[in-house]
Design a protein around this nucleic acid. Sequence first.
DNA 1: TACTCGATCGGA
DNA 2: CCGATCGAGTAA
Length: 184
Amino acid sequence: MPRIVKAKAFRSKKTVALARGLLGKFLVRFTRRGPVAAMITEVEAYDGERDRACHARNGRTARNAVMYEPGGVWYVYLCYGVHELLNLVTGPRGYPAAVLIRGVDGATGPGRLTQTLAIDRRLNGAACAEEGGLWIEDRGVRVPRSAIKATPRIGVDYAGPVWAKKPWRFVLTPPRSALRNQSL
DNA sequence: TACTCGATCGGA
DNA sequence: CCGATCGAGTAA
């Protein structure tokens, strides 16, 4: 049976592990028609001020302030003046880290998935919980390491070669079919 | 206050 | 390959 993942589960400092762990979990958005759920298939980790690709690379600012909150809140920001991108803040209070949700089953691309699920900046700072209308569920899908592909993060060349090359993007390969038999 | 530049996407 | 589109971030 579906289990709602508590916000507290995201307070570990192991951002990369938390990112991998989100693959196969379900992102659930409450709408007028009720809950809409989609399995997470692609994520990226952004880990602390040292990470030159991270929004917190130059310290705390108005935009990234929510990244310094304890893990388990949403960080939603406007990208390229056009797209709202969804991140789940991770780590303890004061440690700015987050996982960018780049794709779910049925919607590839961070900008597309937020549009599909009606997610925007009004959710910035909200808790990852049922009350907030956007939460994470564990529906029993088991994701073997062999089903996860790691690659460099997308669109972060500005971070310089060292950080741009970190294999912190994780993709479920293939998204759905390979996992069907293994769930429950 | 001015100016630069995106954690993207869709169309030419 | 390029334009859209706008606000955060930075420098002044």
